[in-house]
């Protein structure tokens, strides 16, 4: 029987799942993905983590707890730096140690240290170390690694074509058709857009694990679509666009996700490709407390693009979010109407 490797559907799932799952599947393992976040997961996570941890970290704890009884191995990478001289967040750097400290019963851990800030030597060594658990054939590990890289590229291509991560992940799943899942994939928000109103695009900014985890985001994307807005996020922008946006900064942003957010924000500001910007962050998020400030200062100075900051934690009610989204979309509609009238004289 093939061995089961658990991957939590949280945090970097939204950026790397195609790569990681392909790697383990190529090695002959069965990949077990935890269910989309639900109340039980959150509650378990809140119990296990310290109060001061941010919501996404608590949710991650919950996913780990859900996987524990179902798997032979738990994939628990330490993501220090996924690109040259940039970091994610101190919490990602300490996450495996936190989990090991707070959750006492754990299956064997597959710990991969991803620190590409200077070079990828350690990372490759770790990949081989993990690969050896599943096969003695180094060629097969190499093969798995190649395949996983290829999957990641395909995934990124889908994103750059304009699919939001959750949709891209589903598309990939359908095209591969072999990933055995314990759960159904997330049903995408199949929403009927009211077409009695002119189109409206919202640029959504935030960390992937906040935006696309419907439980964490309080279904922001779905709600916006229900209000007749189409939604794009910084994640569909390619590296060149992001870099271009970051040229406006006096100092290189050293947080990978922060850099993406700022690159996206400046792109939206400059091109006017959206009608409004919403930044969704979690309470107590360190990087976002500063990144959001920079976006807000810029929005304030420019004045021509409506901007709204939404902050969520485990106590945030959906109703409050909906009210604010409605008010925001209404405001944009009124602005549009006013402008149209001006144009028509």
């Amino acid at each position: 029987m093939s061995r089961r490797v658990g991957i939590p559907r949280a945090l970097f799932y939204y950026y790397f799942y195609p790569q990681w799952s392909a790697f383990f599947q190529e090695l002959g393992a069965e990949v077990v993905l935890s269910a989309p976040t639900h109340k039980g997961i959150l509650e378990a996570g809140v119990r296990a983590a310290v109060d001061e941890a941010c919501l996404p970290v608590k949710v991650f704890y919950g996913h780990v707890l859900e996987l524990v009884p179902q798997v032979d191995y738990l994939f628990l990478p330490r993501l220090v730096s996924v690109e040259h001289k940039s970091y994610i967040c101190p919490k990602f750097m300490g996450l495996p140690d936190m989990i090991k400290s707070n959750i006492r019963v754990l299956p064997p851990i597959l710990d991969l240290c991803m620190d590409l800030s200077h070079n990828d030597r350690q990372y490759r060594r770790d990949l081989y170390r993990i690969g050896k658990i599943f096969t003695r054939n180094p060629w097969k590990i190499r093969q798995a690694e190649r395949k996983s890289q290829q999957r990641l590229k395909e995934y990124q291509q889908l994103l750059h074509q304009g699919h939001l991560p959750v949709e891209a992940l589903r598309l990939m799943d359908e095209s591969i058709g072999r990933a055995k899942r314990l759960y159904e994939t997330d049903k995408d928000a199949a929403v009927t857009v009211k077409d009695d109103q002119p189109g409206l695009t919202i640029g959504l900014l935030g960390h992937g694990y906040t935006l696309y985890d419907e439980f964490v985001s309080r279904q922001v994307i779905r709600k916006l679509r229900e209000l007749g807005a189409s939604v794009i996020s910084q994640d569909i922008l390619n590296e060149t666009t992001i870099e271009e946006g970051n040229r406006h900064l006096p100092k290189r942003m050293f947080w990978t996700l922060g850099r993406r957010i700022l690159g996206g924000a400046f792109h939206f500001f400059e091109t006017g490709s959206v009608d409004g910007i919403i930044h969704l962050a979690c309470f107590g998020c360190g990087p976002d407390s500063l990144v959001a400030e920079l976006v807000e200062i810029e929005a304030h100075r420019r004045k021509d693009l409506p901007f709204m900051m939404l902050t969520v934690d485990e106590h945030t009610g959906e109703a409050g979010i909906v009210t604010r989204l409605e008010a925001f979309v209404d405001m944009i509609r009124r602005r549009q109407k006013y402008r149209r009238q001006l144009l028509l004289g």
């Binding site: 220090v80 001289k85 967040c89 006096p250 100092k251 050293f254 407390s289 920079l294 200062i297 304030h300």
Partner: peptide, 20 residues
């Protein structure tokens, strides 16, 4: 500083605030 913590970006945020 150059990350990973907030301290490395204090100055840039403070600069913008002071400017405004």
């Amino acid at each position: 500083g150059w990350g990973p913590c907030r301290f490395g970006y204090y100055a840039q945020v403070q600069r913008e605030i002071l400017r405004d």
